[in-house]
Amino acid sequence: MNIYLLILGMALVTYIPRVLPLLALDLEKIPSRIKTFLAYTPFAAMGALIVPGIWESIPGNLGASIGGGIVSILVSIRFKNPVFSIIGGVLTATLILFWQ
């Protein structure tokens, strides 16, 4: 298989959904219910992206995923800085893996 052809094909089918709404939506005329739906979309997306993928984020070690998750939640509510949450979550997961 030609890898470059594959990459170009993947790039195309990835790009289409990213720009299609611009062509399909008249942004001025969206009904308010649809606007509410789209405004809730980011929060719904976070939920669906986290669960259940997070259980498998560190293959074969649920404890490291859960430990990292708890630390990330606590750090994010306390500091509201995503960089701290990433560092805290990854370090916790790594330490749990290291000790086992």
């Binding site: 929060f43 986290i50 560190i58 990330s72 995503p82 979550g89 990854v90």
Partner: peptide
């Protein structure tokens, strides 16, 4: 090796950091 595996958690930490404050 442990860090390579632990790094798999980074994206989830970002998602959690973005949703936890508004959800709380």
């Amino acid at each position: 090796e442990a860090l390579q595996a632990g790094m798999g958690f980074a994206l989830y930490a970002l998602f959690i950091a973005l949703i936890a404050p508004p959800a709380s």
